[in-house]
C-alpha cells in the first residue's frame, strides 16, 4: 500500500534535482564555453522478463548520470588578440595546481612574465606541456588555425614562432568531470589525444550552447510532473485514510 508513496517520492526527488540542473543551465546561458546538461533517469531495477503468475517488482525512478551536450556553441567576435575559440570537438590544456585541466573557454591573458594564462592565472600549455611565453616588447601575437603562435619581435625581420597551443580531444567525453570556472578534469585512465581536426579562431569566443526555449519547456514539464506526482501521493493517502476509517468502523 505504501509503495505508491515511495515510488512517487523517488520521482519527486529526481524532479527537484532536474530543476537544479535546469536552473544551472539557465544561469549559465551567457557563460563562455558552457555546455548544456540534463539528468538521465531510468526505472530501477530495470524491468525483468514478465513471468505470468509472478509478482512484478516495484520499480523506482533513479537518476543514473548526467548527459552533457558537447555540441559546438556559436562563435562571437571580440577582436581581442588573446581571445581564442575552438571550432571542433577539442579542448585547451591548462596547467593548474591540481594537475592538467581542460577547457573550451579561451579568454586568455598574460602574466607579468609574458606567459599565456587563463583569467584565473593558470598556464595555457603548449604541445610539449610547457608554457607559451610571449615577448612583452613584441607586437600583438597572431594565432594560426592549428594553434601556432607567432609574434613580431622588434629588430627581427621575420615573425618569431613562440609555440603551439595544445589542443586535445578525448575518446570518451563522458569521463570528464566539471570543476567550475569552465574547467574539466579527466577521470579516465586514457590520456587525451592531439586534435588536428579542430581549428582555433583568434579574436573570437564560443558562447554557451544553451537553448533557452528547451530550458523553459523543461521548467514547465518539471513543475507539472511534480504537481501530478503530488496529486498521486495525496490520493493514495486519501485512499489509505478512507480504508482505515471504513475497515476500522465498529459495525
Amino acid at each position: 500500500m505504501d509503495n505508491t508513496l515511495y515510488v512517487g517520492v523517488s520521482r519527486q526527488m529526481i524532479l527537484q534535482r532536474e530543476l537544479d540542473v535546469t536552473a544551472n543551465n539557465i544561469a549559465n546561458s551567457d557563460t563562455t564555453g558552457f555546455k548544456v546538461e540534463s539528468l538521465m533517469t531510468s526505472p530501477d531495477p530495470e524491468s525483468p522478463p514478465n513471468v505470468i503468475g509472478n509478482p512484478r517488482p516495484i520499480q523506482y525512478a533513479i537518476d543514473h548520470g548526467m548527459a552533457r551536450d558537447f555540441s559546438q556553441g556559436k562563435l562571437t567576435q571580440t577582436g581581442a588578440p588573446l581571445d581564442l575559440a575552438i571550432d571542433g570537438q577539442a579542448f585547451f590544456t591548462i596547467t593548474t595546481a591540481d594537475g592538467d585541466r581542460y577547457t573550451r573557454d579561451g579568454r586568455f591573458t598574460i602574466d607579468p612574465q609574458g606567459r599565456l594564462t587563463t583569467q584565473a592565472g593558470d598556464l595555457v600549455q603548449d604541445a610539449s606541456g610547457g608554457a607559451i611565453t610571449l615577448n612583452p616588447q613584441g607586437g600583438a601575437p597572431s594565432v594560426g588555425r592549428d594553434g601556432t603562435v607567432t609574434q613580431s619581435i622588434p629588430g627581427a625581420t621575420a615573425e618569431a614562432v613562440i609555440g603551439k597551443i595544445n589542443v586535445v580531444r578525448f575518446d570518451s567525453l563522458s569521463s570528464l568531470s566539471k570543476q567550475g570556472a569552465g574547467l574539466y578534469a579527466n577521470t579516465a585512465s586514457s590520456a587525451p589525444q592531439p586534435a588536428p581536426d579542430a581549428y582555433i579562431h583568434q579574436g573570437m569566443l564560443e558562447t554557451s550552447n544553451v537553448q533557452p526555449i528547451i530550458q523553459v519547456t523543461d521548467l514547465i514539464r518539471i513543475t507539472q510532473a511534480y504537481q501530478s506526482i503530488s496529486n498521486l501521493i495525496s490520493s493514495t493517502s486519501d485512499l489509505s485514510n478512507q480504508s482505515v476509517q471504513r475497515l476500522g468502523a465498529v459495525q
Binding site: R17, D20, V21, A23, N24, A27, N28, D30, T31, T32, E37, L39, M40, D63, G65, M66, A67, R68, T78, G79, A80, D105, R107, Q119, S172, S174, S175, S177, K178, G180, A181
Partner: peptide
C-alpha cells in the same frame, strides 16, 4: 561512466573591452 554533478550557478569572469 558519467557521474552526477549539479552546478551551483554562474559568476562574472571578466568585463571585457572590445578594441
Amino acid at each position: 561512466p558519467t557521474g552526477i554533478q549539479v552546478g551551483a550557478g554562474v559568476k562574472t569572469g571578466a568585463v571585457y573591452r572590445i578594441d
